[in-house]
Simulated assay, not measured.
Amino acid sequence: MNEKPDFKLLFCLFIVAVVWGTTYLGIRVAVETMQPWYITSTRQGLAALIVLVILLYKKQLAWIGWENLKLQFIPAILMIVLANGFTTIAEQSVPSGLTSILSALSPLVVFLGGTMIGQQKISLKGFIGVMVGFLGVVFIFRDGLGDILDPNYKTGIFFLSIAILSWSVGTIYTKMHTHKSNNIALNLFYQFSIAAIIQFVLALIINPDVDFNTWSLRSILATLYLSVFGSVIAFFAYHYALKRVTATQITVLNYINTIIAVFLGWLLLDEKITFDFVIATALIILGVFITNYKRTRGKAEQSEAK
């Protein structure tokens, strides 16, 4: 029995793939004059305020209880405080292109972690799809892979490694508990609020004497973009999609993020797009297709992705 396409899900997947592809550039611009923890605390603080206004307008603001608060606390720490925070720190020294290729490891980590805990079935098709997509990402940056060993990037790559692991574990954890609460906006309000408070405290500790006059309008606008699009819109789309597809299927969109990041480099920074990029794009799209392709054979198979 064939079902109509879930256009809302497809739109959310599109948002995740495109918007988070632009955040590499946004973070790079923000760290030009702003300190990382001030960027992240401002980003999540504004996101929390935006979601708060939405909840008040819909009259949905409520206390979620201690049990659900604990469920929101863990992804807030893993995916926002650590993953988002450390990625922002890493981009102070690591080029956005290299950040993109290393971040593309997360689908592989999620796939392996998900199969180890039995969250999803071991699938040769899934593994092949993840690897083909990752090879496409590697192909884009094959001439610059030696940069990974650059001692100047050592600290940045260390922080980025923690960010990738934290994001992957947070994704698996969220998928495990996503069925326990249906109000995505309310959950995100608590996650953003928790993360903003922790990150602001870190900002005050690490940079107590910051000179706000040194912040450029360019960096401030980039932070505002990260807040509205990178946090509110993309996180809502991400959590909506994660309720309906596997953790691997949603994280494999990181490969599309890389295409977007490279395209923006060409569009805004005059970076060249070579024939290698065209080949890499084809590999990435093929990898995403292999991972997500599924013949419809009735409800039994459809429930496998839920």
Score class of each variant (00 low, 15 high):
V16F: 13
W266C: 13
S93M: 11
D270N: 14
I205Q: 07
K175S: 04
N254E: 04
V53K: 03
D143R: 06
L69H: 06
F236I: 09
W215R: 03
F200W: 14
R218I: 06
L264G: 07
G114P: 11
T87F: 03
K8I: 10
N68H: 10
I74R: 10
F158Y: 14
I122Y: 02
G230L: 03
N68S: 14
V130M: 14
M176R: 06
V130S: 06
L253D: 04
P5I: 04
A247K: 01
L264D: 06
T23P: 02
I284T: 14
S168F: 07
A305D: 12
L135R: 13
M1I: 15
F189P: 11
L13F: 01
T296H: 13
H239Q: 15
K243E: 08
I256G: 13
E32S: 04
F111V: 02
I50L: 13
Y57A: 11
L165K: 00
E304L: 10
I80P: 08
L82K: 05
G144K: 14
L204N: 13
A17E: 09
I290H: 00
P95D: 00
F235D: 04
G97T: 15
F263E: 11
G26Q: 09
K121D: 01
L149F: 15
L102R: 00
G265L: 14
N152R: 12
I220W: 08
F277I: 09
I194Q: 14
L221I: 04
D143E: 09
Q191L: 09
F192A: 11
L102F: 08
F289S: 07
G21Y: 03
L112W: 02
I162S: 11
V18S: 07
L188I: 11
Y225R: 08
E32N: 14
F235I: 12
D6P: 08
A30N: 02
P75A: 13
K4Q: 13
W266N: 10
S93Y: 02
S166V: 07
N2A: 08
I198H: 02
D6V: 05
I89E: 09
V210G: 06
L204S: 10
W266Y: 11
F289W: 14
F127N: 00
T223D: 01
N152M: 09
I259Q: 05
N182R: 11
L186H: 12
F277Y: 08
L224F: 15
I54S: 07
F200A: 09
D276W: 07
S100A: 14
V18N: 12
K8S: 07
I128P: 01
E91S: 02
L221W: 09
M131S: 07
K125N: 00
V278I: 15
P208W: 01
R28E: 00
